[in-house]
Design a protein around this nucleic acid. Structure first.
Lengths: 210, 210
DNA sequence: TTATTTTTTGAACATCATTTAGTATCTGTC
DNA sequence: GACAGATACTAAATGATGTTCAAAAAATAA
């Protein structure tokens, strides 16, 4: 009964192939200007085939975002439970992770941050929406655990850990989106890394109990 | 020669009327799901007429964003030059302004934060792009002046004021976007106000020289 | 080899954003 | 007050593109 399993594998492979093509096109054109036809062309498939694997354009795009979120979670899990470093140093590693992901594929990350808007969410199937919820919750809980550690050790101020985690994530997305759009608006160089550095410095400083 | 002036006024009025209709529809549906036909209907005009006043859908939307940005600037200018309060108190007023604007029309603000992305900016006419640049720069320079005052009075850390202003704006947009999308994802209540409060508390604390 | 199931296709369809040819309204002139 | 020209608007056509579907192709089972 190996045939069924091979077919499953091939199905998964085709899905990946479509996502890889989509990543290229979305990355080059952004969500609205990317066409399903171009994605299909890039994947060497007909447009109709994509709809056998993804409910619609939004869902295809969301699947890419979920992948990135998962990647971020994996990277964070590598250090959140380490005992040889404190919460402040873990904040530093969080920042490094965020910068790495940004540098790996800026456009897809920017698109992820854009995605989280009401109009998109309503076009997703229940399963993908659930997956997105789960993956976001996962990433957020990793961040929360760092903050919680800082609070419990008496290093950080006693605010609600979830609120602080939200602020970390919001600062990340806000800096990426705003600094990037400023770059586009003024044809200036990319200051995302430097701004994230400063933002984290301020934030960690602000977290510290006095 | 009052006729020419009346016509100018009427033209401006029609423009405003289209924008008000667009505000309603964009606010209810978001950018992608709002149709030009619905906006035209709301304004009691035919779709074609809209194109006599706005180059395209993106430009109509951007005009709303410019209005909000201008409003934010006006509000900020009311207190940035006051001598009876210090930079920390001005940060507090900045936050209040941001919360007011959010509460006045959340969706339009969220759309503003979403739409300053590359794909949109390339669809704008040179004039509107210039206007958007100018208005953003205006709002940012008001924020920058608060930060600069704080640094010069020895209250805030000696970072580049523009970077700090960017971080303030980025935090605002990031918190609004992320907390709102979290609300949609989990059907929870609106925590934007509380989160902005905490974020500003952390930020001001982080800005302070030790 | 044949029947059945699975996978893919590409043309058809539907939904808009946008354009345009034509119509109505207004303005200035005689 | 009628007429010519300019201005403002409309309704229908156009084109782009997301999505669906009937048919073809490929794979599998009998």
């Amino acid at each position: 009964m190996g045939i069924h399993e091979r077919k499953q594998r091939e199905k998964e492979q085709r899905r990946k192939q479509i996502m890889e093509a989509a990543r290229k096109v979305f990355s080059a054109k952004g969500f609205n200007r990317a066409t399903m036809e171009e994605i299909a062309g890039e994947a060497e498939l007909s447009p109709g085939t994509i709809y056998l694997y993804f409910k619609n354009k939004e869902e295809l795009h969301t699947s890419l975002s979920i992948d990135i979120l998962e990647y971020i979670s994996v990277q964070m899990k590598k250090f959140i439970n380490r005992h040889d470093i404190n919460a402040e140093q873990k904040m530093h590693l969080l920042k490094d992770t965020f910068i790495d992901v940004y540098e790996y594929d800026p456009m897809v990350l920017i698109n992820l941050f854009h995605l989280q808007s009401g109009e998109t969410l309503t076009n997703l199937s229940a399963e993908v929406l659930e997956e997105l919820k789960q993956t976001s919750a996962d990433a957020l809980s990793a961040i929360t655990s760092v903050v919680t550690e800082g609070i419990e050790r008496g290093l950080f101020v006693e605010k609600h850990p979830v609120a602080l985690a939200d602020i970390i994530w919001a600062t990340y997305s806000g800096v990426v989106l705003w600094v990037d759009s400023k770059r586009l608006l003024n044809n200036e160089k990319d200051f995302v890394k430097q701004t994230l550095d400063t933002a984290f410095e301020i934030m960690v400083n602000g977290f510290k109990r006095k």
